[in-house]
């Protein structure tokens, strides 16, 4: 690979990895609190991708405002799913498997609904900016990718501050360590769970918007969240930082491999590498071995 191409692919990879990192964190937040793999996150990504398209092409043409509106849609969808689908199961104290199965059902339902209504249409996002590429010397960078990188970085930094510094963030961290004790410290874990889904939904909103901008919007766009889940698992379940690092690494490796080997072989190599990685280091990059207390 030429060094110029290499640098370009590296930057693209980091940007893509930023999107994976945001996905991994959205998935990981819910996992940490409720200890189940929330596949409905992909459903929220799909809803947001469509919402982002309609908002940006019909309602608001400004990029930041359209993004914010989509984030709000994602957050509301996340909360709606939690209250309608997960909360009744939680309050009835049913096993975690019910939550897990419900989450898959929701994801499939969203996918099929969009497939039934708009399955045969492609929705390309509008161009938000006149200038789509930036060149530095010989190197050309995509504006979309740089923007994605900047937004992902800002969002992840804000989220870190929120979790470390605010009382709600500390309560979410407490509930992530042990959901049964915080109520005895005066913390309403029902509210905390709702807020966790709002945040995860907002992150899914960002993911959906960016995936929509990068690829075309299809009912299956949410299934790309498998990358986020993979990042969360390689990062080590329970460690959001690990998920971010793994997401970025995954993005870089994917971009470089695609440039070198093409897009048909790359997924095979990546999935194979993940299987081997988890055999060698089942706890992930940063995680402790996670024991799920049901």
């Amino acid at each position: 690979m030429e060094s110029g191409v290499f640098v370009q692919q590296l930057v693209n990879g980091i940007s893509l990895g930023g999107v994976y990192a945001v996905m991994a964190v959205g998935f990981g937040l819910v996992f940490n609190v409720l200890k189940f793999s929330n596949f409905s996150h992909g459903g929220v990504v799909t809803v947001s991708a469509y919402a982002g398209f309609f908002i940006s092409s019909k309602l608001i043409s400004s990029f930041p405002l359209a993004l914010i509106a989509t984030i709000l849609v994602g957050a509301a969808t996340g909360l709606l799913i939690e209250r309608l689908v997960f909360r009744p199961v939680r309050l009835a104290k049913k096993p975690l498997t019910y939550l897990f199965v419900n989450s898959i059902t929701v994801a499939m339902m969203v996918q099929q609904t969009f497939a039934a209504i708009w399955g045969s249409y492609y929705f390309p996002y509008p161009e938000f900016f006149k200038r789509t590429a930036f060149s530095i010397g010989q190197l050309v960078f995509s504006g979309t990718y740089l923007l994605m990188l900047a937004v992902s970085a800002v969002v992840l930094i804000l989220l870190t501050l929120f979790l470390k510094k605010t009382k709600l963030g500390i309560a979410i961290r407490a509930a992530s360590s042990d959901i049964y004790t915080p109520p005895l410290m005066g913390i309403n874990t029902d509210v905390i769970t709702g807020i966790t889904f709002i945040i995860a939904g907002a992150l899914a909103g960002i993911t959906g918007f960016f995936l929509g901008m990068t690829y075309t919007v299809t009912p299956f766009i949410g299934s790309s969240m498998i990358k986020g889940i993979i990042a969360a698992i390689i990062g080590g379940m329970g460690s959001l930082t690990g998920g971010v690092i793994a997401g970025i690494l995954l993005g870089i490796v994917e971009s470089l491999l695609i440039a070198e080997l093409g897009s048909s072989v790359t997924p095979i190599i990546i999935y194979l590498a993940i299987v081997i990685l988890l055999l060698v280091r089942p706890q992930g990059i940063a995680g402790n071995l996670y024991t799920v207390k049901a």
């Binding site: 500390i170 309560a171 961290r173 992530s176 360590s177 915080p182 410290m185 005066g186 913390i187 309403n188």
Partner: peptide
């Protein structure tokens, strides 16, 4: 005790609400 929080944050937690 909440393992994910420091000793002092554990104590502060019960005043958070």
């Amino acid at each position: 005790l909440i393992e994910g929080l420091s000793v002092i944050d554990n104590v502060k937690l019960s005043y958070t609400s």
